[in-house]
Design a binder for these strands. Structure first.
Lengths: 111, 111
DNA sequence: TTGTTAAATCGTATATTTACGATATACAAT
DNA sequence: ATTGTATATCGTAAATATACGATTTAACAA
């Protein structure tokens, strides 16, 4: 099975990738946890989720790959935090698609 | 492999499901095509995409399942259209999560 | 009735995602 | 040097997603 993603526009591919990063409740939960932590104490993420440590690490990697979070080494721990600049860009991209759809919206008689 | 989605909040599950619906470029392309069609002429979707008819039908089903589009029988064709009410709710849900994250955002010293 | 057309569904192959345990790695403290 | 702790990575199993061709269904037209 060959992915056909290449044949779509860059905007479509980019947005799909962003949406994919949010397409699991654990990753949304992780973002909320990271946002709420003071001083970026990041060793507690696993304790907050009903998932194994390795699974959480996998979800973190996906968020890191898309750029939504960054991890900095802090002794034996890794300090994760949200990249709010990337998050704002992401939201702007999402908004843009909804705007685009509204902009080309035409009244239709049939439904 | 058992999905752990049940153990997350309803908001997290709902947003993840919405994001999943957008997590493929073909489905974003479909939404744009539907928005731009006058009079909801819907038989042309397959022609616009580099995918087989059965694959497009599968993508349409995913958009339909989440409620983003509706299909009405119109003779031998099915007339698809965007449910703009649902789309607005979806955007509101997305915005809410970003707002939530901003609201609980704390300044952190380490990154 | 028969044929045409459009869309859905079925069957199937492959890719990707999700999840876990086990192991490896990196640093801190003793 | 050894031990402990936190995180990443590896290996693997199972679930889900993607894609296609073939078939079925539904509605209309001839």
């Amino acid at each position: 099975m060959i992915s056909k993603s290449v044949e779509f526009s860059l905007q479509e591919q980019r947005l799909a990738a962003l949406a994919k990063a949010l397409a699991h409740p654990a990753r949304i939960a992780i973002l909320k946890i990271l946002a709420g932590l003071e001083g970026c104490m990041c060793g507690d993420i696993v304790d907050e989720l009903p998932l194994a440590q390795s699974t959480v690490s996998q979800h973190l990697k996906q968020l890191k790959d898309i750029g939504l979070i960054r991890g900095e080494i802090d002794g034996p721990k890794v300090c994760y935090c949200i990249d709010y600049k990337v998050m704002a860009e992401m939201k702007a991209d999402l908004d843009a698609v909804f705007s685009d759809i509204e902009a080309i919206r035409k009244e239709s008689g049939c439904c």
